[in-house]
Structure formats: structure tokens, C-alpha cells
Amino acid sequence: MIQALAFYLFAFVVVLSGALTIASRNPVHSVMWLILAFFNAAGLMILVGAEFIAMLLVIVYVGAVAVLFLFVVMMLDIDFAEMRAGVARYFGIGLALAVALAAEVMIAIGAWSTGPIQLARRAAPIDDAVPNIQAIGNLLYTRYLFVFEAAGLVLLVAMIGAIVLTHRQRGGVKAQNISRQIARRPQDATRNTSPVVGQGVEL
């Protein structure tokens, strides 16, 4: 009972926020609705017992992708009124895409109901007793450790590459030198004077 209630709650909010993502006038609001949709989709994943995917949704999609979206939307100077003007022009293409997607969903459901594709060999049967985060962790850090470490190296190369291609030394930049700031004493920076009336000040 409580599962059904939770399912309909999450599903309703996902559909609603999905619709509002497209419908809202302000793109920042769109991204906010998108984040809400992601959160509720994560809830649906937890209901079907895929807690790892649920966490990934929250961490990767909400934490990184959606926030990145938000930055892009807020920082780029896009004329949204002009973009909206194109809706009528691209309506046909959008409709065709929607029909194609709907057809794919139908075919997928049809194929699913006829039974799974025959696999030649299953190397790693799924153990129902182990939670899937633990199962992935067991494989990732033992059996696939070598690949995991190599993937770390790939990320290192990506980081080096980004710096090599974009970093340049800028001249004339006023960088903060903290040790010089701290080493500066009051007597170096201030001076006691007693100006005489009518003489002005010496700068």
C-alpha cells in the first residue's frame, strides 16, 4: 500500500515537473523543475531497488549537470523571446520526434513482453542477497581494480590536457602576496606628521 502511494507520488511529481520544465517561461525556473524531476526519478529508482542508480542520479545529474546548466543559463546572454519565436517553425520536427519516441516505447514494450534476448553466456549471475551498491563496490575495487585505476589515469590526462591547451601566463596581473602583506609593519606604512596651519600637507 505504502509502496503504491510512494510510487504514485514520485511518478506524479516527475511527470508534472517534466511538463513544467518545458512550459515555464523563465529558463532558470525550467532548470529548477528539471532538478525536481531528477530527485523524484531517484525516488522511483529506490522503489525498484536500484539504490546505486538513485544516488548517481542525485549526485551526477542534480549535483553536477543541473548546476552546470543553471550556470550556463544564467551566464549566457540568450534572447529567450527570440528562441521561443522558433517554436512554431520547428513544431513539425518536434512532433515527428515525439511520434518516433512514442513508437520506440511501444516497440520496446512489445519486445519486452515476448521475453528477454538469449544471451550466449552469463559470466556474473546476479546475487539477490547482496545490495547493489555493495555488489558494484565488490567488483569495482577487486576484480576491476586495474581498469578503475587506469580510468583514473584517463581523468588525469584530461586534466593535464585542459591546462596545456588553455593555461597561459598573463602579464601585469596584480597577484596577492600573502607573506609580503604579513611582513609589512606599521612603521613602514604610516607616518606621524604635525602639519602647520596654512602650510598644506606634504604627500
Binding site: A150, L153, V154, G161, L165
Partner: peptide
């Protein structure tokens, strides 16, 4: 990455090695 590629005996190792080599090559 190239060493990983030529020694790979699993598709995952092969792919990660290939990407390590390629990514450095793009830069």
C-alpha cells in the same frame, strides 16, 4: 595507455587503454 591496449585481454581494459592513449594524442 598503449601498453594497456596491447596487453588487454578484456574489452574493458582495451577500451580504457585506448582512451588513455587517444586523449593524450588529441592534446
Amino acid at each position: 595507455g598503449m601498453g594497456i591496449m596491447v596487453s588487454a585481454s578484456d574489452m574493458l581494459t582495451l577500451y580504457v587503454g585506448l582512451e588513455l592513449q587517444s586523449l593524450a594524442a588529441y592534446v
